[in-house]
């Protein structure tokens, strides 16, 4: 996947730093507000030490609205809604690896965990972020 390797760029060169998080015990309303206020399509659910426990996407929200009655929704927390597997990459990984992971899992977004912070998320890499690198390479 040579197109993704111009000038030896890594995940850290294109990732978006910072990530929108909610506490695992946040109510559904707070989760929705976090998405809306930050204009993002996913938030990471974290434990009290800020380590990632799961990810909540707009798809997860649609699913719980389909599967639960309104009264049940009122009592739900981030932990009930999240997908407990957080697909991630390291800042020092190649963009090629990141693209392979997105394709394999059919997802457009990877959470970044760094070796210094363990499972505390430090950023997000989206497929849109990676388009920038492809474009730079096309111009060369």
């Amino acid at each position: 996947m040579g197109y993704l390797e111009p000038l030896g760029k890594k995940v850290r060169d294109v990732m978006t730093r910072g990530v929108v998080t909610v506490r695992f015990d946040a109510g559904l309303e707070e989760v929705l507000r976090a998405m809306k206020d930050n204009d993002v399509t996913a938030v990471v659910a974290v434990d009290p030490s800020d380590e990632a426990m799961g990810i909540i996407t707009t798809f997860d929200i649609l699913r719980i609205f389909r599967d639960h009655a309104k009264e049940e929704l009122m009592a739900m927390t981030a932990e009930d809604v999240m997908t407990p597997t957080v697909e991630h990459v390291n800042p020092t990984e190649s963009l090629e690896n990141a693209a392979r992971k997105m394709l394999e899992k059919k997802i457009h977004r990877l959470v970044i965990f760094s070796s210094e912070t363990g499972r505390v998320p430090v950023g997000v890499l989206s497929s849109t972020d990676m388009m920038k690198i492809l474009c730079e390479n096309l111009r060369r």
């Binding site: 996947m1 040579g2 693209a99 392979r100 394709l103 059919k106 497929s127 849109t128 492809l134």
Partner: peptide
């Protein structure tokens, strides 16, 4: 077409 369709080209090592 999504970004993933584009990554697929590279995984298959085809040229754009």
């Amino acid at each position: 077409i999504s970004a993933l369709d584009i990554f697929k080209i590279f995984r298959e090592e085809r040229s754009m």
